[in-house]
Amino acid sequence: MFFSIIIPLYNRPQEIKELLESLTKQTYKNFEVLVIEDGSVDDAEDIVNSFTDQLNVRYFVKENAGQGFARNYAFERAKGDYFIIFDSDCLIPADYLEIVNNSLAKNWLDAYGGPDAAHPSFTPVQKAISYSMTSPFTTGGIRGNKKSIGQFHPRSFNMGISRQVWEKAGGFIITRSGEDIEYSIRIHTMNFKIGLIPRAKVYHKRRTSLYQFYKQLHFFGRARINVYKFFPNELKAVHFFPAIFTLGVFFTLISNIFSWPIAILCNVIAVLLILLIFFHSLSKNKSVKIAFLSVLASFIQLTAYGLGFMQDFWRRVILKRF
């Protein structure tokens, strides 16, 4: 199997350096790398070119149009039997391609996704964010999980598709805002075999601050409604959970301000959730600091997603302003 690894890039030269360094350590060597500079001001040409003696890497520059169309640009130029998409803020374990190659040989998948995890080098904030995005106590519990609710939808930070999928389904039709969800659903409708490769994990940095994480998750909430425009039936009950959680937080605050009797029950529920997240994170990360930050990150994840979801649900579903 010859793999084409596709990495869209926008003003993140240091990230691509770390990602390419991780790819030089792959135990499976039959692959190429395509880096698509999507109209960056701070480009990474020199950094990418410094790896040409270690990797089969090609560097392209195009006008800024978003990560979805940058990936399409790479699909058109890729030589591989199978295309693998990574976000630029990922680190790839040395045995990643070997795991994928062996898995596809035993159980063919036309498209796959893999989970993400926190690398030991990540900051406490990054580890807390990683926890919140994979925790069973947040919506992260349905990502990269064998027991996920409904169909499994690969996400573009760690996703692979066969050349046959590209030839039949084409590329991304949304360049931002839920483009990977729409693409995954479209692949499903064409009856391709899709699944999770549980051991094909990447170390995903995501955001370096809680404020950046809030902005990202607010965007994700809005993106879910963007996908609704293409697939109305894919708006499931589980997608409303962050909005319900957010309304519950506001109700708890108001009930405490006005000393409503129900405030006691709301406070008990809130404390129980905080303790569950804290001790679960503590058991996984072995750090009180990360456990505390995990509580903050989890609440930020749910409320930011919930607010973004409600904003565009009201505008695009209720008012029908597309």
Rank of each mutant, 00 (worst) to 15 (best):
L273F: 10
D42V: 13
I318K: 07
Y73I: 03
A94L: 12
V35K: 07
Q164H: 12
Q216A: 13
P124Y: 01
I181R: 13
Y211G: 01
L296Q: 04
K284C: 10
I36A: 07
W166G: 05
M190Q: 14
A74T: 06
S294M: 08
F241W: 15
K25T: 10
S259N: 12
F251A: 13
H280K: 09
E45L: 11
F245P: 00
Y214C: 05
V57R: 08
S135C: 07
V271A: 15
F322V: 03
T24Y: 12
D110N: 15
I254K: 10
F299V: 02
L247P: 00
H204Q: 06
A270N: 06
A237D: 12
F240G: 04
T189K: 15
P261R: 03
D42F: 08
K147D: 11
V57G: 10
S162Q: 08
D87G: 15
A111V: 05
K17V: 00
L319C: 08
D110K: 12
A304T: 05
G306S: 13
K236W: 10
E234D: 00
N101V: 07
S4A: 14
F83Y: 15
V317H: 09
K229E: 00
K320H: 11
I129P: 07
R163Q: 10
A169E: 01
N102P: 02
Y183V: 01
I142S: 07
G171W: 14
R199D: 13
M133L: 14
I174T: 06
G144E: 04
K146W: 06
L9T: 02
R71H: 14
Y183C: 01
I257N: 12
W108R: 08
H188I: 08
A111R: 08
G39R: 03
E167M: 07
L319Y: 04
D110C: 11
E182S: 09
V288I: 13
N145I: 01
R71M: 05
A297C: 04
P154Y: 09
L276F: 13
L319W: 01
E98W: 07
V317G: 06
G306D: 09
V295Q: 06
F220T: 00
V33T: 09
L307C: 15
Y59R: 05
T252G: 11
P120M: 05
F3I: 09
I194S: 02
R143S: 05
H280V: 05
Q54S: 15
I129N: 04
L253A: 10
Q164R: 11
H188S: 07
F172T: 01
A128T: 01
A65Y: 04
D116S: 12
F3Y: 13
F309L: 14
A118G: 06
T52V: 13
G308E: 03
H153D: 00
E21C: 03
N233T: 03
S4K: 07
N30P: 01
G150L: 07
W166P: 00
W108F: 15
V41G: 02
V249F: 14
I300T: 05
L296H: 02
V202L: 13
A200F: 15
E179S: 11
D89R: 00
F278Y: 15
D116H: 14
T252P: 06
E98P: 00
L282G: 09
Q26R: 03
N49Q: 10
K193W: 11
A270E: 06
